[in-house]
Design a protein around this nucleic acid. Structure first.
Lengths: 217, 217
DNA sequence: GGCAACAGAATTGTCAACGATTCTGTTCTC
DNA sequence: GAGAACAGAATCGTTGACAATTCTGTTGCC
């Protein structure tokens, strides 16, 4: 059997619907505040309404979907104020991860970091904000993995999912990648030097500047 | 109709079952790793299995319950290592909240803080660890409220829920309340002085000492 | 013409029964 | 006597239908 076949019903139908819908939201295919009708989604994904419902409940607890009793589900809209709050939490948690990563990272991970830094520099030099934004994600992800902080990583993934729209807007702002790059390079250096204190400081500086940029919306 | 009546069925049965079970777990009425059978719980709370099931799913995403496909649900056991990780996240997030609270707290909230500090001193002097532990919770809660950080507060509440058992053990350890008290008083002073930096440092010092105590298990 | 009450449609919430999976204790074979 | 295969029980997963709620467009009244 094909391993990515559509589970018409039964099996892990919920899981399938969950990932499809999550991706759709993260890709911005769903307009903000768009109504999510259980029946429609269930039909379009080829699962039963119960599976779809379960998926929506999951996404609600992930903070991607908002649901009102007897009124249905909507794509959650994150205001700028919320985005700032979320980023402040990221600042605290990623600071922790960066500090841990500075001591816990393997040599192979340090090499990966170095490579990412070069790729990011190149993306900025080439004026390619989309690639840069992706590498940016990879960098933060790598640091999280290297930290070994399972709990913090889980929280951060949830927080990040809620920021897609804002992140996208931010990346396309002129001049933003340049500033972001130098902050990231400083962070990479701190981790490579295995200096937890400096790594945490660098993360905080970086995310503070993100917050400023968000507020300038 | 009585406002806390048992919704024999219908109504918001899931909500009812959810809160009952959550309280039971938080109070430690459920043994660690105890099996949670949907039918049994549903009957004992007077709701249908579907409602109970939904409640269990919610608790799973809150991290209080662990569930294995086709094998059922258990009260999640938090190992010492996890407790340490969770507390490290608390350290980061409560540090943020304390700093914000130092600038955002109202005068009334500062008075409340002062009162709590006195009550805590008294509880320690009286050798009453249970009361002290409750006041401790109140203090952290008050600081969270005063911070106005909606996102961080939500994350912290989830993290804290997972620590009940460890928190309980910690509070009964001889000598622990004394050390904890002085750290808390320093924190209160920092917030009353409206010094964000000092407040964050005080929180970090306090939770670091909690981590040390946890590790000494 | 504007506003409130009302019926119909759309949508979600709940339920009870059926089907699938996993565990457990027993039996059969070597 | 030990291990594997097997049947039975327990439990969870899924489905389809029904009930409750909310929204919407219309009608009647002032």
């Amino acid at each position: 059997m094909p391993k990515e076949a559509r589970p018409g019903s039964g099996e892990q139908a919920k899981q399938y619907a969950l990932e499809r819908l999550r991706k759709a939201i993260l890709r911005g295919e769903m307009a903000p505040a768009q109504r999510l009708v259980e029946n429609e989604l269930a039909e379009s994904y080829g699962v039963t309404r119960a599976s779809m419902r379960a998926a929506l409940l999951d996404l609600t607890s992930e903070g991607l979907v908002e649901r009102i009793r007897n009124r249905g589900s909507r794509v959650r809209v994150v205001t700028v104020e919320e985005a700032v709050e979320i980023t402040e939490c990221r600042l605290a948690l990623e600071g922790l991860c960066a500090a841990k990563a500075a001591t816990a990272a393997t040599d192979a991970q340090l090499d990966e970091l170095t490579g990412l830094g070069k790729a990011m520099s190149k993306a900025v030099a080439d004026g390619d904000p989309v690639t840069y934004s992706e590498l940016n994600q990879d960098l933060h992800g790598l640091i999280r993995d290297a930290s070994g902080q399972h709990t913090a990583v889980g929280l951060l993934e949830r927080l990040n999912a809620q920021l897609v729209r804002h992140r996208f807007q931010l990346a396309l702002r002129p001049g933003r990648p340049q500033q972001s790059l130098s902050e990231h390079l400083a962070l990479i250096e701190a981790i490579r030097a295995r200096d937890p204190q400096a790594a945490e400081t660098a993360v905080r500086a970086h995310l503070s500047s993100v917050i400023d940029a968000l507020r300038a919306d």
